[in-house]
Simulated scan of single mutants.
Amino acid sequence: MRDPNTTSPFTARRRALVAVLCAALSLGACSKDGPGGGHGSGDRGADDHEVLELRYQGFAGAVSVAELAEDLGYLAPIKLSYVGNTISGPQDIQTVVTGDTDVGHAFNGAVIKLIAAGAPLRAVVGSYGVDAKRWSGFYVTEDSPIKGARDLLGKKVAMNTLGAHHELMLKEYLSRQGLTSAEIAQVTLVVLPPVSAELALRQKQVDVAVLGDVLRDKALERGGIRALFSDHDLFGEFTAGSYVLTTRFLRENPNTARKFVEAAARAVEWARSAPRDEVVARLRSIIERRQRNEDASVVTYWTSMGVAGRGGLLSAKEYQIWIDWLVKDGELKAGQIKAEDLFTNELNPFAATQVR
């Protein structure tokens, strides 16, 4: 197992594969089989789990559903193997396709685009979402002249990555307010790490910054900012992101895949039902023990995983929203992909309780 304190071990060859993948995605083409079938598929344990180690990327200062599941003991005997951090969901699931990691998660819109481009992925369980407690807002300074959508023409909006949750939320807001595609294109998107967005906003380097969860609450405590809108304002409660595995991994490692989904599902429900103080204490402990030079204090602002479906169950409507948007935006053709082909709930133990 790799030393968790080391930086990402991606080789030059793997980096080249990611570059090739990104180029393929821009052309709407990608191998149907591709890499990413998992590693060590011959390492069968006594309990018939085909793979006993799952490589993944982390997010600085945050604890994912998978990390929580492992800490709760739900994933045993399978262990997670940390290979480095990312700030981008699309990049996280690209590394699953290239075989640099075994499991990753991203905004459902990004999952759709990657699969539509030919990536052999399936979403298997919800990873995060939006609810009344967990949401992201688009903020301006108190003295900003920006009051509505049309005021954003020619302005700069900071977000963590392009082609994902925040970009589509911004476009949805602008579209609902009557802006045309040509007008929406006049809004400049600036990629910044989430931890840098607030400072960039206050220093007038950008006009709007996306702030969510802990970063939002800490910024609001300091004052001097106000919200234009939030993703919760637009869509209410919904599962926004999913964990993905390659179809090859699902085929070759069915027991390991089922164990991962079961563990994640149980972790979602534990976080939903446990007292908040208990959840916060465990999240803080996870961050402190993994020793990645992070600030564990931010988890004191934790409120919810935001996952809507019980045990992270996925629903077609949560994908159809983004399919419709991508068709409207010209990134997909009508009928190019069906929501039901993007995900599976077959491995989730809570599927039997789902209302049909």
Rank of each mutant, 00 (worst) to 15 (best):
D100V: 01
G45W: 01
F59C: 02
E167H: 09
T247V: 08
W135L: 06
T256V: 08
L168W: 08
L332I: 08
V111N: 04
V96Y: 00
T246M: 02
R248P: 00
T246F: 02
S127N: 08
S31M: 11
G148H: 08
D48S: 10
L68G: 02
T161H: 08
L314T: 03
H232E: 14
A265D: 12
D233P: 09
V187R: 04
Q203A: 14
A106S: 15
A240Y: 05
P90G: 04
V83K: 00
V187C: 10
G311S: 09
Q186W: 03
W270M: 06
R122P: 00
I323P: 03
W322D: 08
K317I: 11
L215H: 13
N108V: 11
G89C: 06
T6D: 14
E50L: 03
I286K: 11
K328A: 15
R226H: 08
A197Y: 01
V157L: 07
K317D: 15
V111E: 03
T7L: 14
T300C: 12
R272G: 09
E53S: 12
N345S: 06
S41A: 09
E237N: 14
G223A: 06
V355S: 13
S181M: 12
W325K: 11
M169T: 07
A132C: 07
F229Q: 03
W135K: 12
W135G: 01
Q57R: 12
V97D: 00
P254W: 04
P35D: 08
G84D: 01
F138D: 02
R226P: 05
A12F: 10
V355Y: 11
A29T: 15
S315M: 10
N255R: 12
L121N: 02
Q354T: 09
R272I: 03
I323R: 02
E294S: 10
G129E: 02
L250M: 15
S242D: 15
F260V: 03
K113Y: 06
E198Q: 11
S285N: 15
T7F: 13
Q94H: 13
A271E: 14
A281Q: 14
V208Q: 09
Y128K: 01
A123Y: 00
E269Y: 12
G34F: 01
M1F: 10
H49C: 03
R282F: 11
Q205H: 15
T101I: 15
D217P: 00
A274H: 04
A23Y: 08
A110D: 01
V206S: 04
P145G: 04
E331K: 13
L342E: 05
L228V: 08
Y243Q: 05
E70R: 02
A19N: 11
A132F: 08
E142S: 14
A274S: 12
H105S: 13
T98S: 07
T247C: 12
R44T: 13
Q336G: 13
R55Q: 01
Q177H: 15
M1T: 10
G38Y: 00
C30V: 10
V96E: 01
G223T: 09
V214I: 07
D151I: 00
E294M: 11
L313P: 03
D92M: 10
L347T: 02
V18K: 05
K328M: 08
V214G: 13
A209P: 06
D217S: 13
I93G: 01
G36D: 03
R176Y: 05
